[in-house]
Amino acid sequence: MLNRRRFTVAAATLGAASSIALPLWVRAQQARIEKPKLSIAVGGKAAFYYLPLTISEQLGYFKAEGLDVEISDFAGGARALQAVVGGSADVCSGAYEHTINLQAKNQVFQSFVLQGRAPQIAIGVSTKNMPGYAGVADLRGKKIGVSAPGSSTNMVANLVLSRAGLKASDVSFIGVGVAAGALTALRSGQIDAISNTDPVMTMLEQKGDVKIISDTRTLKGTQEVFGGPMPAACLYAPAEFVQKNPNTCQALANAIVHGLKWLQTAGPGDIIKTVPETYLLGDRALYLASFDKVREAIATDGIVPAEGPRTALAAIASFDPTVKADRIELGKTYTNEFARRAKERFKA
């Protein structure tokens, strides 16, 4: 009786609020959502890495699924993750590899919809501070800017360093965010190199501020760096949250896949009209050039590729001794169940 009463009240409220009633199936779905009001933590929302999240928010796709979503933006993925671990946010929009790192610490988190099929992270050395750069070994003792220590930008830098025989302790990592602060840190000489996402990296590259030494902004570049497909941005949450709130997770996956579907055919002008003006960092042309560079790295249907988790695990285990590959159960780090349903619904 309680559920019937709630449904009746909700339907009446919706009917009063709009002269055009929502379809019955939408109202029924909204009535079933376990947590209609929730918070998502993200590390650097202005980056193209999280463009699907921004698109789904700006175009009202979360609301269309009956969700009232509050998005909290942090300096980097590691900070966003801390918010979820600490309980101040329900879901994290962050890098898939965090689910592996967390499991190594006996915390089970699960990705349930993919936003990016390549990390979109490039590493560049300052042409001002390191004009004579000859190889990765030259970074020993240098300051490297990352979105935030422990973030995916930090992870990619660690991987590149390890392949050149360097340890993370051989350099100093400095959090610079993924927006104007990152540009300032590099151009003012506060850091010697930077591992970051677009549009920051394309802006630095086109102005001649950096020399790119590693690039995962394309599928080809990702294959060269990681040796396989590398799942990137996703929505992930504690496994317990996913189990207790399946309809909520389905609604979130629906909204993201809807956004991915829109992005498949969106033109540069559509992007400019949709994202907040501040995301352009004062240069529309360079912002669009950045989008062209990373477009293929955006997921198309929200599904984690079969080989992706293994690629991520191999990469992390290669430089992080706390992650033992034989002890990680990859099947617990992600599920494609929600994304498959969303893909079918939106024909993504």
Rank of each mutant, 00 (worst) to 15 (best):
V125R: 02
T265I: 09
A148M: 11
K324L: 11
I298W: 03
L263K: 06
N101C: 11
E277R: 13
S56G: 11
Y287R: 01
R284G: 02
A46I: 06
H258P: 01
A21D: 14
A314N: 15
A89Q: 09
K45N: 13
G165T: 12
M130R: 03
G150V: 10
K343W: 09
G15D: 15
E296H: 06
P276V: 02
A89W: 02
V200H: 03
R4L: 13
E205A: 12
L260Q: 04
A10H: 15
F241P: 00
Q107N: 15
A315L: 04
V108K: 15
G132T: 14
G228V: 09
S172Q: 14
A342K: 08
Y279F: 13
D90S: 10
N154S: 12
K220D: 15
K273P: 00
Q82F: 13
L102K: 10
S18E: 14
A122K: 13
F291S: 00
I328D: 01
P276R: 02
K143L: 09
A16P: 04
R117M: 11
G87R: 10
K347M: 12
I298A: 01
K244V: 09
A83N: 08
L183D: 00
I55D: 02
L186C: 07
Y49V: 07
V91G: 04
E57D: 14
I298S: 00
G66C: 05
Q107F: 15
Q223R: 14
L114E: 13
S172W: 07
Y50R: 00
T218G: 05
E97V: 13
V275P: 00
T197E: 07
K142A: 11
V69F: 06
A104P: 02
A148L: 12
P119N: 05
G132K: 13
D270Y: 08
L139R: 05
G124P: 07
A339W: 07
E97M: 11
A315H: 03
P36R: 06
C249Y: 06
A75Q: 14
A285I: 02
P309N: 09
Q110K: 15
R140V: 11
L22W: 12
I40S: 01
M130A: 08
A41M: 05
I298Y: 03
I213R: 06
T333W: 05
T54L: 09
Y49E: 01
S147F: 04
F48S: 04
M203N: 00
V156H: 14
V156L: 14
I144M: 10
R295G: 05
E65I: 01
A95T: 13
C234H: 09
F241K: 01
T202S: 14
A317K: 03
F173W: 05
P246M: 09
G116F: 01
R345Y: 15
F291H: 11
F346Q: 04
T300G: 14
K220A: 15
R310Y: 15
V42W: 01
T218Q: 08
G228P: 03
L139C: 10
A164E: 10
A306F: 10
G165F: 10
S151W: 06
L59D: 03
P268T: 07
V294G: 01
G331L: 09
T202H: 11
S56V: 08
E57K: 08
F319E: 03
